[in-house]
């Protein structure tokens, strides 16, 4: 890769975030719970890194770290080679202009007492544009995401979920950011509007050389936008590689499950959740997925699998990745149990 010359847009090195959980009893002790552990990846400029994984596996936590809304407990996060947690206030302001975000819940993302035109232009104003000039750009931004221009005068409660999400996207695009953190930006949209917005995101990326961190549950959508995909399970990255390869020939049993379910043809209940979900307060020994994994054996209980190459560029954290990639147990194992 020629990206070695310049530093990548984003580089995460051993990123870890733990939260303190309040004690169960009055005199108990607060306990740490890891939301993300030892997460490492890079996103070259102009590319998309897709992050998928189980609900609660730490995807939004990674996003919030990149947005500097949380500070890491360990590890480093470099943007264009610069550690974003060692910035001067001036550098931080410049960084705020470079990175924008869209979050998953369209109902929480908009200030309830603000009019739409002020919402979409607020980032512009935060970076010093005067109010008249900023608000004059509102209609253009609204058109970009397919909202009628007279939406400018409405308040958030007058919009539906999908319309709000489009406002959030327009707002994020307003300052021409270089890096966009997209945390499930299209889940609230109908498939047609979703297709529109995704096309728009791809177009913008090509035109403006934008870099995306894209979090999603719909694998087809993730695959449409992403160059590289990371799969998270329980706070850890368990698979990482080129989108097509990871989503077509997964080498981790968890990814395999996701891919099998994403085909979406199986009747409801044909593929059930098997085994026990791990307890974050008492995580299983060895591989975190072993409680639900059809390939699990004694090695898995004994040792945590490290990330290793399954193929060039394709990393996986599984002791039995060759067997998994070959699909040795996919159809018959407890993972894909017949209903």
């Amino acid at each position: 890769m020629s990206a070695d010359a310049a530093p990548p847009m984003v580089e995460a090195i051993g990123l870890t975030k733990t939260f303190a959980i309040p004690a169960a009893t009055l005199f108990g002790r607060a306990r740490p719970v890891a939301a993300a552990v030892d997460v490492s990846f890079r996103i070259p400029r102009g590319r998309t890194f897709g992050l998928v994984g189980e609900s609660g596996s730490g995807k939004s936590t990674v996003a919030k770290l990149l947005l500097k809304l949380e500070a890491p407990s360990a590890g480093r996060l470099l943007v264009e080679g610069q550690d974003i947690f060692a910035q001067t206030p001036a550098e931080e302001l410049a960084y705020r202009r470079k990175v924008q975000a869209v979050f998953q819940d369209p109902y929480g993302a908009l200030s309830p007492r603000m009019r739409a035109d002020r919402i979409v232009t607020e980032p512009l104003r935060a970076h010093g544009m005067d109010r008249r000039e900023a608000e004059a750009r509102a209609p253009e931004l609204l058109r970009l995401v397919g909202l009628p221009p007279d939406s400018a005068r409405k308040y958030p409660h007058e919009f539906s979920g999908g319309q709000r999400q489009r406002l959030a996207i327009a707002r994020a695009l307003s300052v021409d950011p270089a890096l966009l953190v997209l945390d499930e930006p299209v889940s609230a949209l109908d498939v047609s509007v979703r297709a529109q917005v995704l096309t728009l995101l791809r177009e913008m990326q090509q035109r403006l050389d934008l870099t995306y961190l894209f979090i999603g549950h719909d694998l087809a959508v993730v695959r449409y936008l992403s160059d590289t995909v990371g799969v998270m399970y329980f706070g850890r990255l368990v698979e990482l590689g080129p989108a097509r390869r990871v989503l077509r020939r997964p080498a981790h049993p968890y990814t395999r499950r996701l891919v099998a379910l994403a085909a979406g043809d199986a009747p409801l209940g044909a593929v059930r959740l098997q085994g026990e979900l791990p307890n974050p307060l008492a995580p299983p020994s060895g591989c975190l997925f072993r409680t639900r994994c059809p390939y699990a054996d004694a090695t898995c209980a004994a040792r945590l699998p490290e990330m290793r190459l399954a193929e060039p560029d394709h990393l996986v954290a599984c002791h039995h990745h060759e067997a998994v990639a070959a699909g040795a147990k996919a159809e018959t194992g407890p993972m894909l149990q017949e209903a």
Binding site: E54, Q104, A188, H217, L261, L268, V271, L273
Partner: peptide, 20 residues
Amino acid sequence: DEPTTALDASIQDEILILFR
């Protein structure tokens, strides 16, 4: 109303099964 938008495929299925 949109009970499963934020869920991964496997947990989403479990919720739908719960409804059934």
